[in-house]
C-alpha cells in the first residue's frame, strides 16, 4: 500500500520532487491551489450515494408508518419508533432465520475447507489411476451455470430426503448444506495453491515417517492458510447470499435462511415499509458486522479472484 501510484495528478507532481521526499512518501513541498485534495469533491458525493441506501433503511426502520408514507419523504424522523423491530420480530422469526443462515454458512465453509483440501491435495500431489479424467470431469462442472443443474438437484434432494436421510431432504437445512459441501472451484483453487508450495517439506516429513494425512494437516495446511482464508471468505459470502436454491429447496418458515425469510416477509408485508426496513436492518447488520471484522480477508479473496482471472 505504500507504493500506491497516483497516476492522474500526483504522477506529474512527483516528477518534480526530490528522490528523498518520494522515498519518504512526504508531500511535495510546493504551494497547492487547494487546501485539500480535489478528489474529495468527487469522493464525498460518491460516498453519499453509496451509503444513502443503508442510511435510508435505518431511518425508515424507526419511523412511524405515517411518516414513512408521507410525501415529501421525512428524512429526519420526529421520534425513534423501535416498536417496528418488535413488530417485525413478532410476525417473522428473524432470529431463527439468522441462526439458520449462520448454521448453513458455517457448515458449508467447514465442509468445503475439509473436502476441498483433501481432494485438492490429492489432485496436486498424488498419482493415482484416473486422476486426470476425474479432474477433468470435476472441472467441467465449473462452467455450467446453476440453472442447468437445479431441476435434477431438486429431484435428487427430494429423493435423498425420502429414501436416505430426512435431514438432507427438501425443507431441511441439510438440503442447503450438502449440495454445496464441496465445490469444483474450491478443489481447483486449493490444488493450484498446493502446487506452488515447495515439495521438500512434505518429502522430509515423509522420510521421518509421517503419514500422508499427517503431512497434509501438519505441514501443508499451515502453509496454505492464506488460500484457506480466501476460500472460506468466498464460500461464506456465497452461502450467506444464496437465494435461488433455498427458494426452491425450502418452504417452511422455520428452515428459512435470512434472504429467503426476508423475501417471504416482504411478500406478506409488501407495503408495511417500516416493518420491512426493520426486518431488513436485522438481516443486514450481522453480515455487515462480519464483513467489517474480517474485511481484509473478504477484500483479499475478491481481489484474488480478480487477479487470478487476469
Amino acid at each position: 500500500m505504500t507504493a500506491v501510484s497516483t497516476p492522474a495528478r500526483d504522477g506529474v507532481r512527483s516528477a518534480g520532487r526530490s528522490m528523498r521526499s518520494i522515498l519518504a512518501g512526504m508531500p511535495a513541498r510546493r504551494r497547492r491551489r487547494w487546501p485539500f485534495s480535489p478528489w474529495h469533491l468527487v469522493l464525498v458525493p460518491a460516498t453519499i450515494v453509496l451509503l444513502f441506501p443503508f442510511a435510508w433503511v435505518l431511518i425508515t426502520s424507526v419511523e412511524t408508518p405515517s411518516e414513512a408514507l408521507h410525501f415529501p419523504p421525512v428524512l429526519v424522523p420526529h421520534t425513534l419508533r423501535f416498536a417496528n423491530y418488535s413488530d417485525a420480530l413478532a410476525s417473522a422469526p428473524f432470529v431463527r432465520f439468522l441462526v439458520n443462515s449462520a448454521v448453513v454458512a458455517l457448515a458449508t465453509v467447514l465442509c468445503n475447507l475439509v473436502l476441498c483440501a483433501l481432494a485438492g491435495y490429492a489432485f496436486a500431489r498424488f498419482r493415482f489411476l484416473g486422476r486426470t479424467a476425474l479432474f477433468a470431469v470435476i472441472m467441467a462442472t465449473l462452467m455450467v451455470p446453476f440453472q442447468v443443474t437445479m431441476i435434477p438437484q431438486f429431484i435428487i434432494t427430494k429423493w435423498l430426503g425420502v429414501h436416505v436421510l430426512a435431514g438432507v431432504g427438501i425443507n431441511h437445512l441439510g438440503a442447503l448444506i450438502l449440495p454445496n459441501a464441496a465445490t469444483a472451484f474450491g478443489i481447483f483453487f486449493l490444488r493450484q495453491f498446493f502446487r506452488t508450495l515447495p515439495i521438500e517439506y512434505e518429502e522430509s516429513a515423509r522420510v521421518d515417517g509421517a503419514s500422508r494425512l499427517t503431512v497434509l494437516v501438519r505441514i501443508v495446511l499451515p502453509l496454505a492458510t492464506p488460500a484457506l482464508a480466501t476460500l472460506a471468505a468466498l464460500t461464506f459470502l456465497d452461502s450467506w447470499n444464496n437465494f435461488l436454491w433455498p427458494l426452491i429447496a425450502v418452504t417452511s418458515t422455520d428452515q428459512m435462511t435470512l434472504p429467503l425469510g426476508l423475501a417471504t416477509f416482504q411478500g406478506a408485508h409488501a407495503t408495511d415499509w417500516t416493518l420491512l426496513m426493520a426486518g431488513n436492518v436485522m438481516s443486514l447488520v450481522p453480515m455487515l458486522a462480519v464483513f467489517f471484522i474480517a474485511q481484509r480477508y473478504f477484500i483479499q479473496s475478491v481481489a484474488a479472484t480478480g487477479l487470478a482471472g487476469t
Binding site: 490429492a122 498424488f126 470431469v137
Partner: peptide, 19 residues
C-alpha cells in the same frame, strides 16, 4: 482423499448436467 468431495460434485453437478 478425493472420493468425498468428488462424490458430492458428481451427485449434485455431473449427474444433474446429464439428467
Amino acid at each position: 482423499f478425493v472420493t468425498p468431495g468428488v462424490a458430492i460434485i458428481m451427485l449434485f453437478g455431473t449427474v444433474p448436467i446429464i439428467w
